[in-house]
Simulated scan of single mutants.
Amino acid sequence: MPTSLSQHEAFIYVMVMMSAVDRHMTDDEFARIGELVKFLPAFEGFDENRLIDIGRECSAQLAAPEGLDIVLEMIREALPQRLYDTAYALAVELAAADQRIRNEEIRLLQLLRDRLGLDKLTCAGIERGAIARFRK
């Protein structure tokens, strides 16, 4: 398992972590991650063939003792501060995709917000944007 992450890996770890927070990562959630990786400028230059391996690495790290805390710290260390809100937005995107935010997802978003030192107003704006995008 990597001891440090690239920016791309950190973003993928955020999305995998959010997908796996309920202990079950669905094919739809993994497909959504793949769509975001293909679409978003934050992933420019990323080799999409590595996505599955990075997802597995993240899952293994999360399953280890104190895995969540370690993964959150790895993400924080891998990203420059200017990309913290991007990481949060990716987590929100995965949480909102099924139009049901579960308590576990809310708690993980709080942990991510606190670890990255994001202010509540920024996070509320990101969350509100996701709600608007996924509304039917």
Rank of each mutant, 00 (worst) to 15 (best):
E104C: 10
A91Y: 01
A60L: 15
P41Q: 12
Q61M: 15
D85W: 02
E93D: 14
G67I: 07
I33W: 00
A89C: 06
L108W: 02
I101F: 07
I70A: 14
L83S: 13
V71W: 03
E57Y: 10
I106W: 07
K38F: 02
A97E: 09
G55C: 03
G45E: 12
A91R: 08
E104L: 07
R76S: 09
F43P: 08
P80G: 06
R56S: 11
L68G: 13
Q81E: 15
D69N: 12
E93C: 10
L116G: 01
E93H: 11
E77T: 10
L72S: 11
P41H: 11
L111A: 06
L51Q: 03
L72E: 12
I54A: 04
A64N: 13
L62T: 05
D69H: 06
Y88D: 05
A87G: 10
E57K: 14
E73W: 03
S59P: 00
P80I: 01
G67F: 05
R100K: 15
N103K: 11
R100L: 14
D98Q: 12
L36V: 09
P65W: 06
G45V: 05
Q110F: 00
L109E: 10
F46Q: 09
G45H: 08
A31H: 07
I54P: 01
I75C: 08
E104D: 09
L116V: 01
G117V: 00
I54H: 04
C58V: 00
F39N: 13
N49I: 00
R115D: 02
D47H: 14
V37R: 05
Q61D: 14
G34Y: 01
D27A: 15
I106A: 06
I70S: 13
L90I: 04
I75L: 07
P65T: 08
F43K: 08
K38W: 01
R82P: 00
L109P: 02
E73R: 14
R113W: 01
D85P: 00
L51M: 05
R100D: 13
D28W: 01
Q61A: 15
I101C: 06
E105S: 08
L112R: 03
G34I: 01
G34N: 09
N49Y: 02
L94R: 10
S59T: 13
E44A: 14
E73N: 15
R102T: 13
G67P: 11
L72P: 12
E93Y: 01
C58I: 01
D85L: 04
R115N: 06
A96W: 04
N49M: 02
L72R: 11
A96E: 11
V92S: 15
A89L: 09
R115K: 15
R115S: 04
R82A: 13
D47I: 02
R76L: 04
A97W: 00
E44F: 02
D85C: 01
L62M: 12
E73D: 15
A91S: 12
K38V: 01
N103H: 08
R102F: 06
E77N: 15
D27I: 08
